[in-house]
Design a binder for these strands. Structure first.
Length: 317
DNA sequence: AATCCCCACAACCGCCTAAAT
DNA sequence: GATTTAGGCGGTTGTGGGGAT
């Protein structure tokens, strides 16, 4: 009794969103807040299905997301989390609050997977890994990882990830802190994607600037800093909305102490109470902790090496 | 200059889950 | 408890841009 596709109604527009549609959507959400997506096309007159509206918002228009230009640190985090969680992009994205699952997924598929393959090949020639090393990192192309609870290899692509879940989220606070240690966000300015259109805050402010001519020049950076709200009136009003809803647009560091699901306040707006099935909070076992920290250090270090454009050291992936 | 090919990414599709009825 | 449906997520595809020929 599958649910029929929501979008096969006649008259539903598909394909790339236009700035005009974005304006309509943003305006509506600014007024009503995200959620109740079914009513969005009805109330706005957008010829889009609700799903498309939600996707457009969560992946591109939602304030606080960065697009493109993944830093080596982010790459490291993604690679590591992917090895831990498998292709659970939403879960991975929850640890990179400024990134969307779609973006991470795309980046993985187009860049990181290739890197891994390439460097795996190089590694096979130059630097065979010690056999006893726990293979929770770039072991591979993500074809397997160690289930921390059961000490077994789990295929993340398997439909049944149930074994993995507890391990992956056994202590999200610690995981978050660990990642925070390597977090690029506090210090690094991400610049916005080079894409011509469709870039989150850039977009929104651009859209809004159409209405508010007096908008000051803004940083190219799409990253959210507290000051961004001062220069971006829309963002400010978004913040007001978020505040009203019990959330705000915190700097990444502000979010760190609280793990998912509460952690990424932004994530709340995705609607994704990510790891729905997860969050069995509990202390990391010593081995988990060791594995995780060890792995993260290695990945981050390696990513640093690889980002230097230095080829003298064989990389892990 | 024209054509082809490859890559990156935005968007769609279909399945799953949970909430509502 | 069964059914319906909105929302969420991961996989996949379509398309435009840029580089190679």
């Amino acid at each position: 009794m599958g649910r029929p596709p929501c979008c096969d109604k006649v008259g539903i527009k598909k394909g790339p969103w236009t700035p005009e549609e974005d304006i309509i959507l943003v305006s509506y959400i600014q007024e009503h807040g995200p959620g109740n997506w079914r009513s969005v096309p009805i109330n706005t007159g957008l010829m889009r299905c609700s799903k498309s509206c939600r996707l457009r918002w969560t992946n591109y228009l939602r304030p606080g997301i960065r697009r493109g230009n993944f830093t080596p640190h982010e790459e490291g985090i993604i690679v590591h989390l992917q090895s831990l969680l498998g292709n659970r992009w939403a879960a991975i994205a929850s640890y990179l609050p400024q990134r969307t699952d779609n973006d991470i997924k795309n980046y993985w598929n187009t860049h990181l997977k290739k890197k891994l393959k390439k460097n795996q090949a190089i590694g096979a020639i130059f630097a065979p890994p010690p056999p006893s090393e726990p293979s929770i990192i770039p072991t591979t192309t993500g074809a397997g990882h160690v289930d921390l609870h059961h000490g077994m290899i789990v295929n993340p692509l398997s439909k049944d990830n149930s074994l993995l879940r507890p391990a992956a989220s056994s202590n999200t606070a610690e995981v978050t802190q660990l990642i925070a240690r390597h977090s690029p966000f506090a210090a690094t300015d991400g610049d916005s994607s080079s894409s011509p259109y469709a870039s989150s805050m850039d977009n929104i402010s651009r859209l809004l600037n159409g209405f508010m001519k007096s908008s000051p020049p803004q940083n190219d950076a799409a990253d959210i800093k507290p000051s961004a709200t001062e220069v971006n009136p829309l963002l400010s009003s978004f913040n007001q909305y978020h505040m009203a809803g019990g959330t705000t647009l915190p700097a990444f560091n502000d979010m760190l102490p609280s793990p998912p699901p509460q952690q990424p306040a932004l994530m709340g707006h995705r609607g994704y109470d990510e790891p729905k099935q997860q969050h069995q909070q509990g202390p990391l076992s010593p081995i988990e902790k060791w594995l995780f920290e060890e792995a993260a250090e290695q990945v981050v270090d390696l990513m640093d090496l690889s980002s230097d454009g230095c080829c003298s050291v064989p990389m892990m992936f």
